[in-house]
Nucleic acid binder design. Structure first.
Length: 271
DNA sequence: CGCCAGGCCTGCACGC
DNA sequence: TGCGTGCAGGCCTGGC
């Protein structure tokens, strides 16, 4: 679920419902996420006003006056706004409760997600400080990608998933963007030409925007769903399609593991 | 049962 | 030597 487009969709869904509202508190049913949910939130959060809901890479930032909540959805996390008194189902580990009792509820079966707190500049937090440019801004360009990949022997797919190079590109969209750019995932990143980097940066943007549109469409009402709908509506070119015909040329899609992650490509469309 | 999964951190061995 | 790199392991549950 939660790649950049889904996190951004979540942000857009919850921001208008949270911004300007005051928090009554937090309910933590299971603090054992990737890192422990800070116990001091119980006394820090009540009375805080949420001033903004931002996103950086796959992290959500809830500015709460005295500090900022940093939320990451990990592999299996999702957020819903639930009415006051809604009983929690299994894996619904954390509620941020608003004054009217409505809660922003984090469900995360695998508990790879995180809810953290910082009272410093959140973008300087160790988890965020070294993130590369946002892929959907002008800061991420062919020239920037070219610069960032010079001298790197690692595969272009691994480098695309390196959050220091560009923030928020996950395993699915790395394969998808490389397909759109016509580049094989295993190519050494440092050997890409400026023109190829230009095509790849553009492909990342097109891929994420398309996914964002798909996620946005089905997840517009995601507060009433489990948040999975957006993903399944996506029309994937290669991801998860090993052995199936390429949607562009019919050649069977190949799969290999690259950097311990499943990687898919069309051997004819991608060189 | 074993294996896989959209993330991301740490730690290690290796080779340039 | 030092660094970039790939890889293993860890954190967990659920589905096939």
């Amino acid at each position: 679920m939660p790649e950049l487009p889904e996190v951004e969709t979540a942000r857009r869904g919850i921001a208008p419902r949270l911004a300007g509202r005051r928090l009554a508190g937090i309910v933590v049913r299971n603090a054992a996420l990737r890192w422990p949910v800070p116990p001091e939130l119980a006394r820090k959060l009540p009375g805080c006003r949420v001033t903004a809901v931002r996103r950086r890479g796959k992290y959500l930032l809830l500015d709460c006056g005295a500090g900022t909540l940093i939320v990451h959805l990990g592999m299996s996390g999702s957020l819903r706004l639930v009415p006051a008194g809604a009983p929690a189902t299994p894996h619904e580990h954390v509620d941020l409760v608003l004054e009217d009792g409505t809660a922003l509820r984090l469900r995360d079966p695998r508990r790879f997600g995180a809810v953290l707190w910082t009272e410093d500049e959140p973008l300087a937090h160790p988890l965020l400080a070294r993130l590369g440019p946002e892929p959907l801004t002008a800061a991420f360009s062919g020239a920037a990608l070219h610069r960032a990949t010079r001298g790197r022997r690692a595969s272009v797919k691994s480098v695309l998933m390196d959050s220091r190079v560009v923030a928020g590109v996950g395993n699915i969209y790395a394969s998808e963007a490389l397909f759109r750019a016509g580049l094989r995932p295993g190519r050494a990143a440092g050997r890409l030409t400026l023109a190829q980097c230009g095509r790849l940066a553009a492909a990342v943007k097109v891929t994420l925007r398309a996914a964002l549109r798909a996620g946005g469409t089905s997840l517009r009402d995601f507060v009433d769903t489990d948040g999975n709908l957006g993903y399944f509506q996506l029309r994937l070119w290669v991801y998860g399609r090993a052995g199936e015909p390429c949607r562009a040329c019919g050649t069977p899609i190949r799969e290999r593991r690259l950097g311990q992650r499943s990687t898919f490509w069309c051997p004819r469309c991608q060189r």
